[in-house]
């Protein structure tokens, strides 16, 4: 979606009350809140928050679309059954980088029935953000997804669904204005990119060994990444005999990720695994090859216990240091 000339409206004083009231019958409300421990979490809230920019949640809202564990199907001994329908949720205050990440996931899971069902049930309301030290986004580069985008005095519609909501609330809307989305202006240091041939040529480079030496293979970097979506499938059986297959988050830093029966491992060490993650973040996989999947949210930088930094690796390769 192009964000220039998105329909934008001035809003009247009671608009947000009206929006909350309008959505309350059908939707759960979710928003990022900073807890007593200082961590920001995306959580269920009673009503949409007044303050639209509370920062990035540690775990991005991919957790609502691709939960850490979700049933794919169950089996009662005779037939395979689809999982229960998903609740409708409205998520507020989603930052621009996460809207870009949403666009990316929408492409990857375009034909995934369960993702699509959850997605149809999600109303996503973006909000302005405050660049933090780790932020490395490219605000104008990637397309973004979502339904609405709100500030304290304006609202934009980003999708047909968003448009339909605004239509219902026309009474609380002021004039249409030609106004771009408010974007972060001073990102400390945008994501470092690298050309693919240079990456390819670095297969045997010592940089992968060096950079991954301190890696604990904890996988936190992928868990917090809004565009990491690897999954595994795990079966379990209840006491009543019903079996369920779950889709669970997997992680390319885990030792089983590329291992096959007989013990052969196609990515046998941390160096190969770091290179694999780097490749996904800088170039994407499959039909999305050529477009970085990293939206520069900075979560992995913040979360890595040993400060491994993909951008630093890219810069070293670019500088011919490796």
């Amino acid at each position: 979606m192009k964000d220039t000339h998105l329909p934008c409206f001035r809003i009247k004083p009671d608009f947000y009350d009206a929006l909350a009231h309008h959505l309350a019958a059908d939707f759960e409300f979710w928003a990022s809140l900073v807890g007593a421990d200082g961590l920001c979490r995306l959580q269920l809230v009673a009503s949409p928050p007044e303050n639209t920019s509370s920062g990035l949640p540690g775990i991005p809202f991919k957790k609502l679309l691709l939960p850490p564990a979700e049933p794919l199907w169950s089996w009662d001994g005779k037939t395979f059954q689809s999982p229960d329908p998903q609740p409708r949720r409205a998520v507020f205050g989603v930052a621009l980088c996460d809207l870009q990440a949403l666009w990316y996931l929408d492409q990857v899971f375009a034909e995934d029935p369960l993702y699509q069902e959850r997605r149809q049930h999600l109303l996503i309301v973006g909000g302005p953000c405050q660049p933090a030290d780790q932020c490395r986004c490219h605000p104008d580069e990637s397309p973004l997804a979502g339904d609405l985008f709100q500030t304290h005095d304006h609202i934009w519609s980003l999708s047909n669904r968003g448009h339909a909501v605004l239509k219902e609330l026309a009474k609380w809307l002021g004039a249409t204005v030609d106004r771009p989305l408010p974007k972060p202006l001073q990102v400390p240091k945008p994501r470092a990119d690298i050309r693919e041939p240079l990456f390819r040529a670095s297969t045997g480079s010592a940089i992968w060994q060096q950079s991954s030496q301190s890696c604990l293979a904890c996988g936190v970097c992928s868990a917090v990444c809004p565009t990491c979506y690897c999954y595994d499938m795990i079966d379990h059986t209840d006491l009543d005999g019903k079996s369920t297959r779950q889709r669970v988050w997997d992680n390319c830093f885990f030792s089983t990720h590329a291992k096959v029966a007989g013990g052969h491992d196609f990515r046998p060490d941390r160096a190969a695994r770091l290179r694999f993650r780097f490749e996904h973040k800088k170039f994407g996989f499959g039909p999305l090859r050529g477009r970085p999947s990293c939206v520069g949210c900075g979560r992995c930088l913040k979360a890595c216990p040993v400060d491994i930094d993909l951008d630093q690796i890219a810069e070293q390769l670019n500088a011919g240091e490796a």
């Binding site: 595994d232 997997d250 996904h280 996989f285």
Partner: peptide
């Protein structure tokens, strides 16, 4: 989708 099989992107 699951990325396990990805090779050379």
């Amino acid at each position: 989708e699951c990325c396990h099989c990805v090779t050379g992107g």
